[in-house]
Design a protein around this nucleic acid. Structure first.
Length: 573
RNA sequence: CGGGCUGUGGCGCAGCUUGGUAGCGCACCUGCUUUGGGAGCAGGGGGUCGCCGGUUCGAAUCCGGCCAGCCCGACCA
């Protein structure tokens, strides 16, 4: 490929609206352009990388028995009504109508349609099956951001497994678990598998694959000692214990004029450190006013409430709802003596005595509260956000909390979709058996972006060989020097002939421009050909990763690069 | 959905307070000189100033509404 003929619109300056590294570098390097919020055009360079990522994914999914298909991106609403998701995922699901006024939707995922295809399965002899496609999804995210990290329209590889029983599902799930690790390794990323909340997928068990990155939106708890890892939506930990000073009598009221926060209360009297307070949050859970109790220094993880109480309708109560329920304002709330409201308490409060909490009377608090004695807890439920430094739930060593990007997610779906859509087979005994399903997703663009987030420097992107848009760029320093253009052209042709993906920078630009562009777009090796080097009988091979330079005879350079490129392509395999 | 900010050639920005000929840098085109880390000189092309309405003799500028985008939060495989 001649650079002079290629459409690679690099920008000298960062786009003004770009914050995330991948956003800055992919736009500046001419890989992508924005059409609207959360919607990006893939330019030639971006498409080259995306294709290579897709090829890696195909190879690994094919290797575990996947069969590629392509399912439609516009679905009839009818099928989604059968599984309940037409109504359940209100918001990000885009609905439309055709000319006959039929309800349609834009696919945000493909469980319904793969399951519809699977209704043709009739016998256990046909199982297991593993089907996948690489297809567009559209999710009307409330807030697209971070370049390619959170978008509305994107390409995803999603695979779906079909088995006669849970044991078969386990096998396919494990196969994906291993295939996903291989995929991320080949993309040059170190992915951590974590237990996750399944969200609206409604599965029984799910594992997310997370890559550490500052631009990430998820946090995971991670134990360096035993490798325990979980999304903080689900992670548990052993908080440092607190030794309570004994208190025998009943709770005692004390005045706290103007005190509204945990921090302010710690200063009153010196007996109410945050870990000796009970934090009382008022929520509406499934329409019911619910008190959520936490240790004063702990934070609520709402997703745990959603998962633990089994409803998506979870929101903080409004001020008027709070005063109607408890007769006081936020800042003076407590659960002592409260009747008729659901009370959910975090286990870190269990057995605690001599605690401080609000008296449900503005400007008054209670001390000497014995949780088990004084609070009518309906449900003990872990609703606490894990923090760095707390004990690992499996080995007790201190946990780390890392900011990460979710690059893949695998779900054990069970029989939810097959039951709703009637996908079943006859077993050896002639009995009708509902098919056990799993679904497994990897976002192509998000992975592309995550590689950039984790592999770049001040000059630009550093692509791993496996997915670099080009593997080598041959840079002619002086295009009106016939000798060096001749040598550069020969090297380019020979590299292409030997199967190396090579770009020939034949543009009539100053060397500085050419070097800067090559570094920005992140090509792993640059061969610099110019009169100065040729006078010494050499060309230069510069490695993008660390800038290492080798001076080498033109006649030897092609074989040398071919060896380097082919070795690096295999990294991670 | 709440808070903050921004919309002016392809990109980055000034001009708006105090209404009166739309400007700068980069990029682009032509010529000459230059050429191993984002060149110099000269000439040139390109803008409904986000949209609609209002005020005014006159609006990029003032007022109102709307739209779009970014950041924080809520939300969210």
């Amino acid at each position: 490929m001649l650079w002079s003929r290629a459409f690679i619109p690099t920008l000298r300056e960062d786009p003004a609206d770009a914050e995330a590294v991948n956003h800055r570098l992919l736009v500046r390097g001419g890989f992508i352009r924005r059409l609207m919020a959360g919607s990006w055009s893939m330019l030639p360079l971006g498409m080259r990388v995306a294709k290579k990522i897709q090829d890696v994914i195909r190879e690994e999914i094919d290797a575990i028995g996947g069969q590629e298909m392509l399912l439609p991106v516009v679905h009839p609403g009818e099928i989604w009504k059968k599984t309940g998701r037409w109504d359940d995922v209100e918001g990000i699901l885009v609905k439309l109508k055709d000319r006959r006024d039929t309800d349609l939707l834009l696919a945000m995922t493909h469980e319904e349609i793969f399951t519809t295809v699977a209704t043709e399965l009739t016998s256990y002899r046909q199982l297991p099956q593993l089907w996948y496609h690489l297809q567009t999804k559209f999710r009307d995210e409330p807030r697209p951001k971070g370049g390619l990290l959170r978008v509305r329209e994107f390409t995803m590889k999603d695979s779906y497994s079909f088995d006669i029983d849970p044991a078969g599902l386990d096998v396919q799930f494990q196969n994906h678990y291993r295939a996903y690790h291989r995929i991320f390794a080949r993309l040059g990323m170190d992915a951590i598998a974590v237990h996750a909340s399944s969200g609206w997928m409604g599965g029984k068990e799910s594992v997310e694959f997370m890559v550490e990155a500052a631009a990430g939106e998820d946090e995971i708890a991670f134990c360096p000692a035993c490798r325990y890892a979980a999304n903080t939506e689900k992670a548990t930990s052993v908080p440092a214990g607190v030794v309570d000073e004994p208190w025998t009598g009943p709770p005692e009221r004390f005045p706290t004029p103007g005190i509204r926060t945990i921090a302010e209360l710690t200063a009153v009297g010196g007996f109410a450190s945050a870990d000796r307070q009970i934090k009382t949050l008022v929520y509406l859970v499934g329409g019911t006013v619910t008190l959520l109790l936490l240790r004063g220094d702990h934070e609520l993880m709402e997703q745990k409430v959603v998962d633990g109480l089994g409803t998506w309708e979870v929101r903080p109560a409004r001020d008027d709802e709070i005063t109607a329920a408890l007769g006081a304002h936020a800042g003076s709330l407590g659960a002592v003596g409260v009747k008729g409201l659901r009370i959910v308490a975090d286990p870190a409060l269990r057995g605690r005595v001599n605690m401080v909490t609000g008296a449900n009377d503005d400007d008054w608090h209670l001390r000497g509260v014995d949780v088990d004695r004084d609070v009518a807890v309906d449900t003990w439920l872990d609703i606490r956000l894990v923090r760095a430094g707390e004990g690992c739930p499996t080995c007790g060593k201190p946990l780390e909390v890392k900011r990460t990007i979710e690059v893949g997610h695998i779900f054990k779906l069970g029989t939810k979709f097959s039951e709703a859509l009637g996908a079943s087979v006859l077993d050896p005994d002639g009995e009708q058996r509902v098919i056990w399903m799993g679904s497994y997703g990897i976002g192509v663009g998000r992975n592309l972006a995550t590689v950039v987030e984790s592999s770049h420097d001040a000059k630009g992107i550093i692509w791993p060989m496996a997915i670099a848009p080009f593997e080598v760029v041959v840079t002619a320093v002086k295009v009106d020097d016939a000798a060096s253009m001749g040598v550069a052209g020969e090297i380019h042709a020979a590299l292409v002939a030997s199967g190396v993906d090579t770009l020939f920078d034949d543009r009539d630009e100053r060397p500085g421009v050419k070097f800067a562009d090559a570094e920005l777009i992140g090509i792993p090796y640059r061969v610099t050909v110019g009169p100065k080097g040729l006078a010494d009988g050499v060309v230069e091979v510069v490695r993008r990763r660390d800038g290492a330079v080798e001076r080498i005879a033109p006649a030897a350079v092609v074989a040398h690069l071919e060896r380097l490129v082919k070795a690096e392509r295999e990294l991670g395999k």
